[in-house]
Each structure stands twice: as structure tokens, then as C-alpha cells.
């Protein structure tokens, strides 16, 4: 498992691709909502930019692969230099799909409370919607200094995932296509997606810290 040339090869590949590096990339932004909650708690705001400007995802949509965005929001309490406290996590997902027969885009928001679906007639409109900011109803508990971290995993769904999603939307509770899918399943899915040649990406960002006090 020791191969110095491998590192050189990877570094060489990285440095050999200047042109495409200029293309627009998906951006994840995590910020704080306005100071309107009791004790100055701030809700997290999550925004994904340039999803459809990124060629990988626009190509995947055009090839009829639904694009799935899995969000994981974690709430952390800072202990000022000591180990921070993980409070809890919230997960949700968004699936973007182009339906060529109806020439429309479908966006499905997968929440624990059930799926919510939107349809858009044009690419511009769905792109505009996807750039909107999610304000997440998940506030920290207690007082102290808090911050949020958000991990975004973007995948192009395989045929099996599409089938799972269909079942989930059809209300089959034992077919978890939502964020509740187990991690092993997700890892296997990611590997399968890689082998199948479908894109896969992961981003992580955190919010500025904020203080909750009486």
C-alpha cells in the first residue's frame, strides 16, 4: 500500500486540469437567520448555488438521472476551546428530476412529515428555485454559544434509487428513500454510483457562531 508515485500521479492529474476548473461549481452556503427568536437564538439558513450551472449535474438531469441532494444539519454547542458538544442532527433531502414527456422539472422535498412536490415548466425557474435559501426550523436547546454544520451530498440517482423513491412517494413505509436510509446503504450507493459512472459530490460548511442567552 505504499506507493509514492501514486501521490505524484494524483497531484499531477490535479495540476493538469486548469481549464475545466474555471467552470461554475456547486456552492453550499450556511448562514444565520434574523435575530427574531427568544433568547437570541438564530435559525440556520442553507443555500445551494449553481447546481444547474455545474455541468455534471445539468448533464445528469438532461440524461434523465434525477439529482438528489441529501442535507445533514448538525447543531453544536461551543465550549470555548474545549471539546464541543454535539446536540443533535436533522436531515432532509431534495430530488430534482426532469420529466421529458411533460417537459417539466419536478422538485421533491423529502421530510419526515412526508414528501412535498413542486413542478416547474422551465429550467430557469427550477434553477431559480434551487438557488433559494432554506431556513431550517431546528434551533439549539439551552444557552451558550452555538453553530451549525451542514453536509450536503449530491448524487445522481440510479435506477434502483428511482424505484425506491417511487415506492417512498407511493407511501410504502418500508422503502426508505428519504434521509432515513442507513449509512451503510448510502455508502454502498455512493460506490455503485461511482462504478456506474454517475457523478457524486459532497460539501461541508458551517455557520458563524451565535450566542443564546436569557
Amino acid at each position: 500500500m505504499r506507493r509514492l508515485p501514486l501521490l505524484a500521479l494524483v497531484l499531477g492529474l490535479v495540476s493538469a486540469v486548469p481549464v475545466e476548473a474555471q467552470e461554475q461549481r456547486v456552492e453550499l452556503r450556511v448562514s444565520l437567520g434574523p435575530d427574531t427568536f427568544p433568547m437570541h437564538a438564530r435559525a440556520p439558513r442553507v443555500q445551494v448555488r449553481n447546481l444547474l450551472a455545474d455541468k455534471r449535474w445539468s448533464d445528469a438531469l438532461e440524461k434523465l438521472f434525477p439529482v438528489r441532494l441529501d442535507y445533514r444539519l448538525e447543531i453544536w454547542r461551543s465550549r470555548e476551546g474545549w471539546i464541543d458538544e454535539f446536540q443533535r442532527a436533522a436531515e432532509w433531502a431534495t430530488v430534482v428530476q426532469w420529466e421529458p414527456l411533460q417537459d417539466q422539472y419536478r422538485v421533491t422535498l423529502l421530510l419526515l412529515s412526508g414528501p412535498q412536490e413542486l413542478r416547474f415548466p422551465t429550467r430557469d425557474e427550477v434553477a431559480r428555485y434551487l438557488n433559494y435559501t432554506y431556513e431550517v426550523d431546528a434551533l439549539p436547546r439551552g444557552t451558550g454559544t452555538f453553530y451549525y454544520t451542514v453536509t450536503l451530498t449530491i448524487t445522481a440517482l440510479s435506477a434502483k434509487d428511482i424505484e425506491d423513491l417511487e415506492r417512498f412517494l407511493a407511501g410504502q413505509p418500508t422503502a426508505p428513500a428519504g434521509p432515513e436510509r442507513n449509512s451503510l446503504g448510502r455508502r454502498i450507493q455512493q460506490f455503485l454510483l461511482r462504478v456506474a459512472g454517475l457523478p457524486w459530490d459532497e460539501r461541508e460548511e458551517r455557520s458563524p457562531p451565535f450566542r443564546v442567552q436569557p
Partner: peptide, 26 residues
Amino acid sequence: ALALLCAGAGPAAAMQDSVVRISPEK
């Protein structure tokens, strides 16, 4: 664009100000 929303409380209700409010823990 709207196909299915739950009594106007879903994402589209908040789309006008470009902020969609969601409750993933609910």
C-alpha cells in the same frame, strides 16, 4: 409550477421572499 402543496404551508408559500422554511424534525 405548483402541483402539490399542503394547504399553502409548504415551500411555495415562502418562495416569494426567496426563503423556504422547512421543518425537517417535524
